Amino acid sequence: MNPRPVRAGNDKVIVTCALTGAGDTVGKSEHVPVTPEQIAASAIEAANAGAAVVHIHVRDLDTGQGSRDVALYRDVVRRVRESGVDVVVNLTAGMGGDLVLDDEDPLKPVDGTDLVNAHDRLPHVEELLPDICTLDCGSLNFGEGHQLYVSTPDMLRAGAKRIQELGVKPELEIFDTGQLWLATTLIEEGLIDAPPLFQLCMGIPYGAPANPELLQTMVNMLPDGAQWASFAIGRNQLPWVAHAALLGGHVRVGLEDNLYLAKGVKATNGQLVERAVRIVEDLGGAIASPADARELLGLREAARA
């Protein structure tokens, strides 16, 4: 199959900024936002720098760790919406899939486990009706030790059906080729409305490695008519903007995935977006506005009410 072309001319590249994530990064950079006020301000900064979409996690105010607290999401989204800055809101729905096993007794979950069913991962989506929410399309050995991310086929079917009922666009987060297979099965079963939106997530141990040839293979596996983006973590984040754009995809940057603008230079979300915009434009691409993103992704009016 021939590679898909670089986006250029009237083809618009959507820049997503993943603002904070849920990883243990708060102590590694003073720029990682923690409070709702900081996360919302970072979203506005990213939008003003050229991001059409902001991907939002929230963090516990005391520990700085990732949280599923609906009140925190409510506060962030209110601040963003009331700011008057136009940006597409993408809320994570991946929290609630963490399982950490005991070394001696694998049937015994230990500290760090936060495992709930598909519907219990969605109360903030049900209340706030963002434009987009994520759907992590499979289980994964997540890093070292005994930590797993759990998202079974039936959990995904239940989550996809509920997201579809709400009129929210699911971003199908893909961490390996088997997850891409499963996501296309959900589409075939009618649980994902057209156009499907894929996020190809590269370099997360132990999912798909950040290998450009593998990215090309995964792009070739996408169904016709799909919209897709890709990102890689750490030092690969900014080069990956070029890889994704050259294959005809959208791009993602942000402090969820990378803390640095250059070696030893800590970044803000706005700076990472500015760099991504420059890379895309230097390659001959055009940056999508939030209105462009809504049109490209087929976002429903109900999800933006």
Rank of each mutant, 00 (worst) to 15 (best):
G50N: 06
T184D: 05
E295Q: 15
M202S: 09
V253A: 07
I39R: 08
D103T: 05
A22E: 12
Q38Y: 08
E281T: 15
S139H: 01
A288D: 13
R74Q: 14
D60T: 07
G50L: 06
A286H: 14
L222N: 04
E188C: 00
D98N: 13
F231V: 11
P205R: 06
L172F: 02
D102H: 13
L200H: 03
G254V: 07
G248E: 07
V89S: 07
Q164D: 14
N10K: 11
T217W: 02
A71C: 00
T16H: 12
A22P: 03
G225R: 11
Q147Y: 04
Q227Y: 02
N211R: 04
R7Q: 13
V125S: 06
R275S: 10
A286I: 06
G264I: 04
R275W: 01
L107Q: 14
G145V: 01
G143N: 01
T113E: 14
I39T: 15
A49K: 13
A244L: 04
G94L: 07
D62L: 12
L247T: 02
V241Y: 06
M202F: 13
A210C: 05
V280F: 10
N220A: 14
M95N: 04
L72R: 12
V77A: 08
T268P: 09
E173A: 03
A208S: 12
W228D: 03
V150D: 04
G264T: 03
E171N: 13
V253Q: 06
D292Q: 13
A303I: 06
R7N: 10
L299P: 06
S139Y: 01
A158T: 07
E274L: 08
N48K: 15
D102E: 12
V70P: 01
L128H: 04
H124I: 02
V26I: 15
G84Q: 08
E82Q: 15
A267L: 05
Q179L: 00
I39M: 12
Y206N: 12
L246G: 03
D11A: 15
V34S: 09
F231R: 01
G264F: 03
C201P: 00
R300W: 08
G207T: 00
E37A: 14
G203H: 03
G84W: 09
L115P: 11
K161G: 00
L182C: 00
L259H: 12
Y206P: 00
K266Q: 14
L135E: 00
D292C: 13
T20M: 08
V219D: 05
V26W: 11
P106N: 07
G112T: 10
V15M: 11
